[in-house]
């Protein structure tokens, strides 16, 4: 049984190490507010995606596609594909959840966002109780801040004059996400080709060009990689 003061130490560490990492999420919260405002979706309904989805890129994708009249199936599929990196997090961090209580194995994944994953992977050597205290305190610090900031974004977004075309911030932020995730040239080629395909297929209904463009990109990535391996 860990002493109470030990647990307090890990909780405090989780909270304080999360706060600086939350700063990059603030523009996402603002852009989310703008996107909800432009989509015509009721603000409270848009905000409900914060506790229900808890993932900025997926929330922005879902709301902007719904606002443009995409079908439920198309918008949900696109949002899930945007969030597909969570599968990689889930695989990578699963060993740390072996031997943890069942409630934590169910609750922990709910707050497994990019930053929590990055922080928790640095805590490989903690004992299970310390890992649990750290993971949950970091995760729910991000959660609380995200609930507050997306509500703030919904309030501030509509105050920005429409002549500023602030919605352009959404593709700019996604460019930031795209570029910072690039670790080999194949991914640049894949992103450019997916974009080009999406332009060419932009006339298709329900934004299916988006999905087809992405599928073409993934196939090209696999092709490029298998060629590199065989050289």
């Amino acid at each position: 049984m860990p002493r109470m003061s030990d647990r307090y130490l890990h909780v405090r560490r989780g909270v304080f190490e999360s706060i600086p990492l939350f700063i990059p999420a603030i523009p996402f919260a603002l852009v989310f507010g703008v996107v909800v405002g432009e989509s015509g979706i009721a603000p409270w309904l848009g905000w409900s995606s914060s506790p229900l989805i808890f993932g900025g890129a997926a929330q922005i994708t879902l709301v902007s596609l719904l606002g443009e009249g995409a079908s439920v199936a198309a918008a949900v599929t696109a949002a899930l594909i945007v969030g597909a990196r969570h599968l990689l997090y889930s695989v990578s961090i699963a060993p740390r959840f072996k031997g943890q209580p069942r409630w934590f194995r169910w609750l922990g994944p709910y707050v497994l966002i990019d930053q929590v994953f990055a922080l928790a992977m640095l805590r490989q050597d903690d004992n299970p109780a310390a890992f649990r205290a750290y993971f949950l305190s970091a995760g729910f610090t991000f959660w609380g801040l995200w609930m507050i900031c997306t509500a703030g974004g919904l309030f501030l977004g509509p105050l920005i004059p429409s002549g500023w075309n602030i919605a352009f911030a959404a593709p700019v932020l996604f460019t930031a996400l795209l570029v910072t995730a690039i670790d080999r040239w194949e991914k640049v080629v894949v992103a450019l080709l997916s974009g080009a395909c999406t332009v060419m297929l932009s006339g298709l209904p329900n934004r299916s060009g988006l999905l087809l463009g992405a599928i073409v990109g993934v196939l090209l990535g696999l092709l490029l990689e298998s060629r590199r391996k065989s050289l």
């Binding site: 994708t61 902007s64 696109a78 594909i81 945007v82 597909a84 990196r85 599968l87 990689l88 919605a167 959404a170 593709p171 996604f174 460019t175 996400l177 795209l178 995730a181 690039i182 194949e186 991914k187 640049v188 894949v190 992103a191 450019l192 080709l193 997916s194 974009g195 080009a196 395909c197 999406t198 332009v199 932009s202 934004r207 060009g209 988006l210 999905l211 463009g213 992405a214 599928i215 073409v216 990109g217 993934v218 090209l220 990535g221 696999l222 990689e225």
Partner: peptide, 18 residues
């Protein structure tokens, strides 16, 4: 490996789609 390319492919397509 396919999963690794999902992020850049989707982001590229999504930016254009927006």
């Amino acid at each position: 490996r396919a999963l690794e390319y999902v992020a850049p492919a989707v982001m590229g397509a999504l930016i254009v789609s927006m």
